[in-house]
């Protein structure tokens, strides 16, 4: 094999590899990021326990309606349920499940400083079921208000729920 022919084969392989990469990107749109936008109104319960520095640690459980105003491949609305732990020292971690009208679910993990008005929460989409199988992504939202009522009841509204997802099936 001459050096010229070898160089030609290498160039051809490189071009083929680049073409394959581009074609692959075109035929697998589910790998594209799709953005979404919405709100979440939730109510539930919070339980608190005092800590040594006086700031109570607590668990919370919330559920309510998620309404999306944009977002290709996602339902227009979900039932959003979350459960979490706030250590009272500025760290909140939680898990969230969104369920749509077909019963298909989107799973995510939540993280923020604490559950309070004006606080920004970040979420990481870790997967799903049904048409959301394999879904990944991220989102943020801000608590517009969080109100504690009698007997540990808690209500809040999350605004600016924005994020992006990729993978999963496309909604019809």
């Amino acid at each position: 094999m001459t050096r010229t022919r070898l160089l030609g084969l290498v160039l051809l392989a490189l071009v083929a590899a680049m073409a394959a990469t581009r074609v692959s990107g075109q035929v697998a749109p589910s790998a594209d990021w799709r953005t979404f936008d919405g709100t979440w109104s939730a109510s539930g319960q919070r339980q608190a326990l005092p800590t040594v520095d006086g700031r109570p640690a607590g668990t919370f459980q919330l559920s309510g309606a998620i309404a999306l105003t944009s977002g290709v491949g996602l339902s227009r609305g979900f039932r959003g349920e979350a459960i979490g732990y706030d250590n009272g020292a500025g760290v909140m971690v939680g898990h969230c499940v969104w369920t749509d009208e077909r019963g298909d679910r989107v799973y995510s993990q939540l993280r923020s400083e604490t559950v309070a008005a004006g606080r920004l929460v970040t979420g990481t989409v870790t997967g799903g079921t049904g048409r959301y199988t394999g879904l990944t992504g991220e989102f943020t939202f801000e608590w517009q208000y969080v109100i504690e009522g009698e007997s540990g009841s808690i209500s809040g509204r999350a605004v600016g729920l924005r994020g992006r997802v990729r993978g999963g099936g496309r909604a019809q």
Binding site: T39, S41, S63, G64, A65, A67, R79
Partner: peptide
Amino acid sequence: LNEMGFMGYLGQRLAG
């Protein structure tokens, strides 16, 4: 119904 998101859903849809 409220905890299951029905009330919030209806309110969002009507208002929207």
